[in-house]
Amino acid sequence: MLPPVMAGVDGSAESLAAAEWAAREAARRDRPLRLVHAWQRQPRKDAGPSAAAAQRRVLRQAEDRIRRTCPGVGVDAEQVEGPATGALLHAAEQAELVVLASRGRSGFTGFVVGSVALGVVARATLPVVLVRAGEEASDEHLPAGDGSPSTRTGYQDVVLGLDLGDPCDEVIEFAFEAARLHVVHPWQEPSPLGLGPGEIGLVNGPAQADEWLGFLDAVIKVWRDKYPEVEVVETVAEGRARSVLVRAATGASLLVVGRRTSERPAGPRTGPVTHAAVQHVGCPVAVVPHE
């Protein structure tokens, strides 16, 4: 069986929007959809049967919505018990992609103000897409000729935030497989103390931008050749990476960023750029782990 696209649901409007996004992505990838609801049993003696019934309703609600809005997608559903972050990570081990709400309801039944989503992003070994409430199929597409929302037009850009100092293949490939691509490399004027012979920072600002654009074109060329059907726009922009990416993702259908999986003394983290993207970008954000 092909690995599924997995969506975590908790009964909130945010998680239902994420499940619908996951269903559309499953259809695009020709994969089944797996809905997973993680919950933690309460110690109160009177919470058992009613709590269990409530958890089943969460999955039924999500299944009914997906079958109504994406009828061609194969769907299965599962309850997993335990702390949400660990339970979702365990359930994701056989998945191709995980989709979660970037915000969800508080309480034991679901995500606590995004902490579960961030915890999964920080520890997952596969791509995780975070989706905000209100995300609809038409948000992925260009407006119709009269400016109205449409699902019959071409797709909006997929924005790839690329660090030319660490251009990871897994991150680039995920973005190319997503669709029409806008690649952005943020850069800042380096400190003279950090320069070595031949560094780009030894030339003036406009020339630095041209040099970075040349590097970006060289990195992307092999991917252009591999995916000739993908239209690619390349941009280098001076400024802090988090600010550049938030601006570049305005109006996009998806922002793709990488996350290094190497352990740090403080344990798994999302990193400042990824954290800023998750908090401030309006479109879905795909976080792709890499070495």
Rank of each mutant, 00 (worst) to 15 (best):
Pro4Gly: 05
Gly8Ile: 05
Val9Gly: 00
Val9Arg: 01
Gly11Asp: 03
Ala13Thr: 08
Ser15Phe: 12
Leu16Asp: 05
Leu16Thr: 05
Ala18Asn: 04
Trp21Gly: 00
Trp21Arg: 04
Arg24Val: 11
Glu25Gln: 04
Ala27Val: 14
Leu33Cys: 02
Val36His: 01
His37Gln: 00
Lys45Trp: 15
Ala47Trp: 09
Ala54Ser: 11
Gln55Cys: 12
Val58His: 07
Leu59His: 05
Arg60Tyr: 15
Arg60Ala: 15
Glu63Met: 08
Asp64Tyr: 12
Asp64Ser: 15
Arg65Phe: 06
Arg65Leu: 13
Ile66Lys: 08
Arg67Ile: 11
Pro71Gly: 01
Gly72Met: 14
Gly72His: 12
Val73Ile: 11
Gln79Phe: 02
Val80Pro: 01
Gly82Glu: 07
Ala84Glu: 12
Thr85Tyr: 11
Thr85Arg: 09
Gly86Thr: 05
Gly86Glu: 13
Leu88Asp: 03
His90Asp: 14
Ala95His: 05
Glu96Arg: 02
Glu96Asn: 04
Leu100Asp: 03
Leu100Arg: 00
Ser102Arg: 00
Arg103Asp: 10
Phe108Tyr: 01
Val112Arg: 10
Val113Cys: 07
Gly114Cys: 02
Ser115Ala: 11
Leu118Phe: 09
Leu118Thr: 06
Ala124Gly: 08
Thr125Leu: 12
Val129Ile: 13
Val129Met: 11
Leu130Cys: 09
Glu140Pro: 15
His141Val: 10
His141Leu: 06
Leu142Thr: 08
Leu142Glu: 15
Pro143Gly: 00
Ala144Tyr: 03
Gly147Gln: 06
Thr151Arg: 13
Thr151Phe: 13
Thr153His: 13
Gly154Met: 10
Tyr155Pro: 10
Tyr155His: 07
Gln156Cys: 10
Gln156Ser: 03
Val159Asp: 04
Gly161Val: 12
Gly161Asp: 11
Leu164Ser: 04
Gly165Gln: 13
Asp166Phe: 00
Asp166Ala: 07
Asp169Gln: 07
Glu170Trp: 03
Val171Cys: 05
Val171Met: 09
Ala175Lys: 07
Phe176Ser: 03
Ala178Arg: 14
Ala178Thr: 14
Ala179Asp: 15
Arg180His: 14
Val183Lys: 05
Glu189Arg: 00
Pro192Leu: 06
Leu193Thr: 12
Leu195Arg: 01
Glu199Thr: 01
Ile200Pro: 15
Val203Leu: 11
Val203Ile: 14
Asn204Cys: 14
Asn204Phe: 08
Pro206Glu: 04
Ala209Leu: 12
Glu211Trp: 15
Trp212Leu: 14
Leu213Asn: 06
Leu213Val: 09
Leu216Lys: 00
Asp217Tyr: 01
Ala218Lys: 03
Ile220Leu: 04
Lys221Asp: 15
Asp225Lys: 05
Asp225Thr: 06
Pro228Thr: 01
Val230Gln: 13
Val233Ala: 10
Glu234Thr: 12
Glu238Trp: 09
Arg240His: 13
Ala241Glu: 12
Leu245Met: 12
Val246Met: 11
Val246Cys: 13
Thr250His: 15
Leu254Glu: 04
Val256Lys: 02
Val256Cys: 08
Val257Ile: 07
Arg260Thr: 11
Ser262Cys: 11
Ser262Gln: 14
Glu263Met: 06
Glu263Lys: 00
Arg264Asp: 04
Arg264Cys: 02
Thr270His: 06
Pro272Trp: 00
Pro272Asp: 02
Val278Trp: 09
Cys283Tyr: 11
Pro284Val: 03
Ala286Thr: 02
Val287Tyr: 07
Val288Glu: 06
Pro289Gln: 02
His290Asp: 07
Glu291Gln: 08
